[in-house]
Write a protein that binds this DNA or RNA. Structure first.
Lengths: 88, 88
DNA sequence: TCTATTTATCGAAATATTTCGATTTGTAAA
DNA sequence: TTTACAAATCGAAATATTTCGATAAATAGA
């Protein structure tokens, strides 16, 4: 898990992805399907956005049967917090 | 200065803008012209990227004669640091 | 005022992102 | 094995971003 600020920032630069991240943080028992209701997007679009968040290292993805179990990558969040702290 | 994560993240989602931010943090006596050498971009492209960083609240801009004096917005950086800390 | 310098804006081309419907893949349960 | 469901991939259209050269605006100094 390398800290790629550009990639992480890009992942967070979309309102739907921010919504998804915050929902995963709030409720660790969400599945991708829940994001369709939450964002109003189609299933393929949700899949696309979840992939970007996972690829950027912000979310971790564990396949659990037909569902995907998502969780916030806390190590990455701490790295990002530290990155911004260095400027403040 | 409102904390718009989506906008701030978007501003940081480009390698040239990250370079510019880090150069301003390193040396508070840079002018926009210096970024042309640093990034290899044209002057209009640099102007465009600086504007995005300023509009997102990451950099502050003070006009000083013909030059623009840029500085890192430390309050915004602290807000961003806190935003990520809440997840970690 | 005239000239040089720094930054901003305009217009357009190239590239990237977002989105959907259709389809495929993978898995659980009947 | 067949069916049903969750998620991923494909292909294409719409939209947004990045970039440049040309030009304009603003200002300092001769």
């Amino acid at each position: 898990m390398d800290l790629n600020i550009e990639k992480a920032a890009n992942a967070l630069s979309d309102r739907h992805r921010l919504t998804i991240l915050q929902e995963v943080a709030r409720n660790c028992n969400v599945a991708c399907g829940d994001f369709e209701r939450l964002t109003g997007l189609s299933q393929p679009a949700v899949s696309h956005h979840v992939k970007i968040l996972v690829d950027a290292g912000l979310l971790s993805s564990d396949k659990n049967g037909r569902h995907v179990q998502l969780s916030v990558n806390k190590v990455m969040m701490r790295h990002l917090s530290n990155f911004f702290q260095q400027f403040s």
